[in-house]
Design a protein around this nucleic acid. Structure first.
Lengths: 186, 186
DNA sequence: AGTGAAGTGGACACGGCGTCCACTTACTCG
DNA sequence: CGAGTAAGTGGACGCCGTGTCCACTTCACT
């Protein structure tokens, strides 16, 4: 496997920055491959070479932001990272996700087209994290609960709540209640 | 406003039964207007006369099943209907919704195309119900929580959980925990 | 400079969407 | 009962997005 060619790298960068702009300025669910191609000044074929659909472009952009949080969850300071009680860690995770959604909700929305929410790699990571917290808290049969606790973080739910006039901190507060209340029962 | 003409009524029936069959036999997210038209033996124009998109056909079919539950919530016997403590009523509602999803998950999935989940009339009803239960339980600022408690009932979440091998009763159990635990904190 | 492989981009065929309108059918009223 | 009329029908049409394909260009290595 040869290293990436210079023109290919140049185009990859052009595509990503152009895509970020496009997703930001119009309804992310209606962004088309052509839009990105035009904005990046490349042909559609070039896009398809790397990304099988628009969703994956959005995922690629989102990953940059998500990996930071993922690292913090694994090896950062408490309460996000290890060391704090599970309830606090879950609440902190919720808060961090809300911040992420607030900053990049448009991208997150774009990753949902075609209902591949659960296929995306990041979902597995979040799920594994929540699952381990639930286990640590001693919650019985946490498998089903994990998905259910992740559901309120679905981009469309958050965006809907924001559109209804709820502030990010209100959303965080409700999620925090959920997190703390859960461990009470364990 | 004139009464509906005989042929129109006939076609409405043909469309609905044909649509139900089509949604059942293939991935409901890929069902097209043409599929339904062909199956019903009518032209596409006839479909558009009543339903602006496939989603609304699915909604029309689903409504038949949902109205039953809605009535029970309002005037049925406890714990589904009025009279039981909020936590029990919430758990019962969750269980009923799981049954509904288990029976008609395909339709529910089809209503989600285009991200109109929150625009559909039924969502408002469920939300109002949960909201009133939360108020009755004395939970503070229940507005944000209502959407979050409804999120695990999103068709794609449920279908995903089933596909993972979780049984309906496992899903119910986890939701019941959520419901009971919440009122503990009030 | 020459060569082969990697990369590019736009033309193409396909399929779904939503509209439009000439035609058909059912009700109504003389 | 037999026009007249409004409601209802259906398929053709144009549009747009998708994903593929392949002749051409560019790069990197010698």
């Amino acid at each position: 496997m040869r290293p990436e060619r210079a023109d290919a790298a140049r185009n990859r960068a052009k595509i990503l920055t152009a895509a970020a702009a496009v997703f930001a300025e119009k309804d992310p669910r209606t962004v088309t491959m052509d839009d990105v191609a035009k904005a990046a000044g490349v042909g559609r074929g070039t896009l398809y070479r790397r990304y099988p659909d628009i969703g994956s472009i959005a995922v690629a952009l989102l990953d940059e932001h998500e990996t930071g949080l993922q690292r913090e969850l694994m090896e950062g300071p408490p309460p996000l990272g290890p060391g704090a009680p599970p309830a606090d860690r879950l609440a902190a995770f919720y808060a961090a996700m809300v911040d992420l959604l607030e900053a990049h909700g448009d991208l997150a929305l774009a990753t949902e087209v075609g209902g591949k929410r659960f296929a995306v790699g990041a979902y597995g990571f979040w799920r594994a994290h929540v699952l381990s917290l639930l286990r640590e808290a001693g919650v019985p049969s946490p498998e089903a609960l994990a998905d259910q606790l992740l559901a309120p973080l679905a981009p469309d739910v958050f965006v809907h709540q924001r559109a209804q006039g709820l502030s990010p901190s209100q959303v965080k507060a409700a999620l925090a209640r959920l997190a703390t209340v859960l461990s009470h029962s364990a």
